[in-house]
Design a protein around this nucleic acid. Structure first.
Lengths: 190, 190
DNA sequence: TATAAATGAAAGTAAGTACTTGCATGTGAA
DNA sequence: TTCACATGCAAGTACTTACTTTCATTTATA
């Protein structure tokens, strides 16, 4: 069962996501976690301490990008779909923490750094992949950096528009995205 | 010269952009606008009134999308570059207000609506354009909705990553984006 | 110049908020 | 049982913040 600390952390993330850091009052966090307000301070010292703990708990991206590299099979279509799916998995599972970082830019420097690392790391994986694939003549000879960045624009654009800017009836499922949308991108590399 | 009301509005937008709605105190807004704090309330009633006025002043997108339609020449490469440039122009000029809307989701419903309309309207323009171009056999026969959405993911992804998630030395200028990056996308439609 | 409108300065109010303190209660381990 | 430890409860403190009121001063306009 979820212990007190974890409940507090979860409630804090949820509320900061909903109302922003300033809008997430300690009282509300305590209520949602179903603990007394004092308990927050006993565990984490102050409000920022709660969020710092939350960030430390949820901002691991490194392992996940490692599984990307391992999953590569040197089949263009298969690999790019896998890489895109893994990326969407990461951003979906860390959705709250990513959006908090974008909203509260500057307030949690370590988080900012972790979030900034994600597109850079991802870009490098894709870029290296394209370089090798071009060497092996398994795809068109194009600038691998340009292609890698485009791939990221594309994937991030889907994630964010999907999540925040589209009405429900306009949403496109991940499956549809991978099968129909991504294919168009991949075809342009063949 | 900028009058009192305008100075207040500008200061409010800047500060909400920097610190969030709650973080932008009326005192700080007054200081930045170089007016007495009371003046805010005399002009706008309350804090929310300032931002409501700001939003009303800066959230016109309709005219701009009209100029997109008029600028079409039915030359694929030229048109898509134009459409992308205009989009980047819009989001750059409304940058603050767009980011405020994303951060303060739910607080300003009219703004949310206006911001949500932008990708939808843009998508429809592009989609209609692709439909006609396919009819005229000036581009590949692909699903125009898929292509239109991809175009938007791509453009929005560039804007946002550029603005918020990349380090300075990694930034890609709009010119480079249009010439190198966009070309890759356009080639895939030919 | 005379009058109205816009702004400033100072002070204050009411509410909210992060955080503290002291004490009571429950619970699991020795 | 006993004792340490986690948690709850009640009350309070110090500070911030949106907003008000009153009066003086400047600025524009007729």
């Amino acid at each position: 069962m979820e212990n007190t600390k974890d409940r507090i952390i979860r409630a804090a993330i949820e509320l900061v996501d909903e109302k922003g850091y300033k809008g997430a009052t300690t009282r509300a966090i305590a209520e949602r976690a179903e603990v007394n307000e004092v308990t927050l301070f006993r565990h984490f010292g102050n409000k920022k301490g709660i969020l710092d703990a939350a960030i430390q708990k949820y901002s691991f991206f490194d392992e996940i990008t490692e599984t990307m590299r391992k999953g590569i099979t040197w089949n263009l279509e298969k690999d790019l779909k896998m890489l895109s799916e893994k990326y969407q998995e990461i951003v979906a599972s860390k959705r709250n923490i990513i959006l908090i970082s974008l909203r509260e830019e500057g307030r949690f420097p370590e988080l900012d750094e972790a979030i900034q690392k994600l597109p850079t790391t991802y870009r490098n994986i894709i870029k290296d992949y394209f370089i090798t694939m071009i060497e092996q003549k398994k795809m068109k000879k194009i600038d691998p950096e340009v292609a890698a960045n485009n791939f990221i624009y594309f994937n991030f654009g889907y994630f964010f528009l999907q999540d925040r800017l589209l009405e429900k009836n306009e949403k496109i499922t991940l499956n549809k995205f991978t099968d129909n949308y991504l294919s168009m991108f991949i075809d342009s590399l063949k």
